[in-house]
Nucleic acid binder design. Structure first.
Lengths: 359, 359
DNA sequence: CTGAAAGCGCTTACAG
DNA sequence: CTGAAAGCGCTTACAG
């Protein structure tokens, strides 16, 4: 086992590593005032002479004292922390294009407000439903984000019962819960119409995994837009939002006699995997088969060919959700925000179907 | 402004939303025992009759009581939280291939231990140095991760002074700080030798941004390996770890009279951007120019052509670092762990240099 | 303008 | 086996 101890005699010591912990009591003693005066002085409350305030500030500075969030939280009943609990195995999250952008957006707003983000993954639905009350009762977070909301999501009842502040991402509004949305339908619809306009009539779909809201939604738009245009939906292959899944789908879809002339993938990763395998199988993209993605990840502009996709805004969702959540925590007022729709981004992975197929 | 209030009469209410908060006192009263008995019973301490324990558990269950981490932390001097503080603007982080994997690894270990991750970004060096003592004094985290360690990093002194438990990633060991490492040199060296073996003699480098340890390290291996083999290092273009930077580098490197026959990029994103632009400029990869990456992100296997790169293990780094950190917090024992070296991954983006250049 | 006291929700000796 | 008390580090009425 490569783990080794440091040096010949490993140092064993208790968690608080023998340091002098300075508390409000020390500052008060040193400054010759009561602890309540220290508290008032450093929290900018009125009723402390400028003189005393200065002296206390000096002592605190010299002793290197910062108020303990812990002690403060206990009485203020605020944790100065918000929680993001995602039901996703760590492995999936690592490839999730939504994740990093969403967190980045959260952090930009959170940091300025002096809040921190508590992040936890649960690998099952039950895991989530167990953690939420734990967080609420422990008062370890002041509010939470709700992502991947499902219809009849039991978390809403839980949140109401627990009196937890929450902001939900991309879902119908529930009483007491703030929401921030970005419409995906219009962009997805535009994507389908773009393919129809190019002349495609055999349009397949590589979906996301079962049970995800996004999977169902994108599949529905694919089906209804085609049907609405009088075109029969092509083959449907179930993917899993990964490039591996996209590659497997290419194997399935391109093997038959009449392969589709366009393939609508549930996300960019899937599309990139599809294109990779299609190329390996000798199918030229977009000359023989057009391929589309969804998400608009940064790399989608640097694939060969660059990907036609729908540009979503995980960063903005995270930032706006955080604003609404902090507002709810602070004022109790439930707000709702709608981001501009996700936009169709036409690039080079789509073209008219091959001529011989057009008659 | 699209933000709107919900319903005709916005509900304003204080943060604790009028819920009955149940505490240990309630459980004790209901069960007819002292709060110390409740505490002992539910923490599995000895000295409570099985009968009483059952009764108390029943009451706690019925009342939906979970011990408050807050109250517990105050006396136990443990936060049951570890902190990850990265000096990176949110925007960079969103494209950072290390980030998601590292966090994924952290979470797999943390969740099982009942710990949570506190995540915070700082946009400057000073921001980091301000937060660390804040966290330490507030006792809001029990330990922290040190990433992007620089030589003479001031955080080590800070940590020692504050008596904070810490684990450092990929850096020389410091007294009192656990470390977990994965050697990148050998894989990077193997990558360079692979290009030399293929017959390349004009090998350029697109580096990472200034001031990052990884940038300096990879550049150094590029330079010394070539020099050691008697080959003069080719052109050096400064990149920024993004695909945009890689594309710009392609413009610079491929414009001249004698373009390089191989380009070593500081990471996969850069390489993918480079290939994209190179193709657009009419350069065939790898026929006319070989391109290599670094990181081994999932998508690197699905580009066209699939990328020759060095496979690193952010997930394993995160998981192992977390194990060592929790061990340090719990026992005070400083351990060190070395992951298997990052491995060269030969795929299709490298080939012998074009013939006419070989004489 | 300042201080003594109570209390937030727990755990940990200590006494019965 | 069980309970009363002290205390963790703060803030918030309240009294001087």
């Amino acid at each position: 086992m490569p783990t080794r101890m440091s040096g010949p005699t490993p140092t064993r010591r208790p968690a608080p590593r023998g340091q002098v912990r300075v508390s409000i009591t020390d500052v008060a003693r040193e400054a010759g005032v009561a602890i309540s005066t220290v508290s008032a002085a450093l929290n900018g409350r009125t009723g402390v002479s400028e003189d005393t305030r200065q002296r206390i500030a000096g002592v605190a500075e010299r002793l290197g004292w910062v108020p303990s969030i812990r002690g403060r939280s206990l009485v203020a009943r605020r944790a100065w922390t918000v929680g993001l609990l995602m039901q996703r195995p760590a492995s999936v999250l690592e490839a999730d294009p939504f994740f990093a952008g969403f967190i980045g957006g959260i952090e930009t707003v959170l940091d300025d407000a002096g809040y921190a983000l508590l992040l936890q993954l649960a690998d099952s639905r039950d895991g989530v439903l167990r953690r939420v009350p734990q967080w609420a009762h422990s008062e370890v977070v002041d509010g939470i984000y709700l992502t991947d909301v499902q219809s009849d999501d039991p978390r809403f009842a839980l949140i109401e019962r627990l009196g937890l502040s929450a902001v939900a991402i991309n879902c119908a509004s529930h009483p007491g819960v703030a929401t921030v949305d970005q419409q995906h339908h219009p962009g997805m619809g535009a994507l389908l119409r773009h393919l129809l306009d190019l002349g495609h009539t055999r349009i397949a779909h590589v979906s996301g995994p079962d049970g995800f809201v996004h999977s169902a939604e994108r599949e529905a738009v694919w089906r209804t837009t085609l049907t609405g245009a009088g075109v029969r939906p092509g083959a449907l292959v179930r993917g899993d939002f990964t490039s591996e899944g996209g590659a497997r789908a290419a194997d399935q879809l391109l093997a038959g006699d009449e392969p589709p002339t366009a393939v609508v993938c549930a996300n960019d990763l899937t599309a990139i995997g599809f294109i990779s395998r299609a190329s390996a199988l000798g199918f030229a993209v977009p000359a023989q088969v057009s391929v589309t993605g969804f998400d608009g990840i940064q790399l989608s502009g640097f694939t060969t060919p660059p990907l036609t996709t729908v540009q979503t805004s995980p960063h903005d969702l995270g930032a706006e959700a955080t604003r609404l959540l902090l507002h709810l925590i602070g004022t109790g007022e439930v707000l709702h925000h709608e981001l501009p729709d996700a936009q169709l981004l036409i690039r080079a992975s789509t073209a008219p179907p091959p001529l011989q197929k057009m008659m």
